[in-house]
Design a protein around this nucleic acid. Structure first.
Lengths: 207, 207
DNA sequence: TCGCTCACAGTGGTCAGACCAGTTTATTTT
DNA sequence: AAAATAAACTGGTCTGACCACTGTGAGCGA
């Protein structure tokens, strides 16, 4: 499906070559990449072009550079993307509302995922933990989102959380009782009509 | 201009200054940014540093450069970020499963948002459209996600959709009847217990 | 006056070289 | 052997140069 990219910029090509290089050499987080000068020579391009590619990857949080040491693979998390996406894209009031809404719905999605995926026994322990755990809002939902076992939701949620906190808004203050109530409700609805339709659609989407 | 602070890289500072510049001048998608050389002079930094900042923003899909013309604000969409995030981050099978799961749940979230936000009348027209519209899967859900009026969900969904399509997987084939059934169910549950708990939590999160 | 050509200025794209500021490694000195 | 020093890296930045491309306007001809 690759279109004939006639006007492909050099740094984009470098990014792609880096990607295959990383895959081929099996580079993992923490591993070191070749130096800028070596890449420049090996790929037959100028060092500035290499740098443009690296800076882009750095901003995306995929690599990390340390002066005097080198360039390293990074354990991708939200990172810089957070500040940029947030400060650039999320400026008006409506956007802030969208963030709240999205964060909230993702948290509920994860709660739902946990309940759908967990066994009866696991579910009881989960509910018990909900009531007993000593947590702040962030920690609580971080646990929820982690338990949902969906890395993508985790990534997105962390980004939203960081942005949300940077807004210095009033925090949600929800009691443990309310959480427990929600979980109870979701559990009791585990076989409800809505969920059944959800399930059907999901089954279909599993090719 | 920039006091050479220890750890702050110049191009990061430039990105931030660009951001405030865009905000201050009220630049909108399609508007032109100052040339690289002018920015270089105005900010008191080298042109290569300016370029590193611009390339990073370009990769994020925030700006667009046209040789011979200039640099322009972009109407942000998934863009390059898609291919990069996808090829770099989403490689193993579990990640693919996460993408499907996330895409699916976001679509349901948006459906839920529409139903929650819409008036009785709007809802009827929506349901009618669901049955009558001639759409592909993508178009249908694009409409759903758009109607949900949450730009963040829209952005994320487009990214996921593009990645999903690039996988060359079997498409979901769901009938209009099934869609309608789901919508009916969601509407009928609009005031159900689950939704009420959702609402309560949401109210609390509205500080 | 109108319409066309064409040179020119401006813009992004790229490169090479230079220097700075750190880190690591090898070498010398103690 | 240990410590101090020097050399050889690394990324960070700036400058100047050249290319390819675009828009403009001066100048020419009709």
């Amino acid at each position: 499906m690759n279109s004939p990219q006639n006007n492909t910029k050099v740094y984009i090509g470098i990014v792609k070559q880096l990607r295959t290089m990383i895959e081929h050499d099996g580079l993992k987080p923490g591993d070191r990449l070749p130096s800028e000068r070596e890449l420049s020579e090996r790929l037959g391009v100028g060092r500035s072009s290499v740098r443009e590619a690296l800076r882009a990857l750095e901003l995306l949080g995929l690599i990390e550079t340390r002066r005097g040491e080198g360039t390293f693979m990074r354990d991708f998390r939200g990172h810089q993307l957070v500040q940029l996406l947030s400060t650039f894209i999320l400026q008006d009031k409506k956007s802030i509302r969208d963030v709240k809404e999205t964060k909230f719905l993702i948290e509920l999605d994860c709660l739902w995922l946990i309940i759908q995926k967990a066994s009866e026994d696991r579910l009881l322990r989960f509910k018990k933990w909900t009531l007993e755990a000593d947590y702040t809002d962030d920690d609580f939902f971080l646990e929820i989102v982690t338990l949902a076992d969906n890395h993508l939701f985790l990534r997105i949620w962390i980004i939203l959380k960081d942005y949300y906190n940077s807004l210095d808004l009033e925090k949600m203050m929800i009691t443990k009782q309310q959480y427990a109530e929600l979980i109870d409700t979701l559990i009791s609805r585990k076989d409800s009509e809505v969920v059944r339709v959800y399930r059907n659609l999901r089954k279909l989407s599993k090719n």
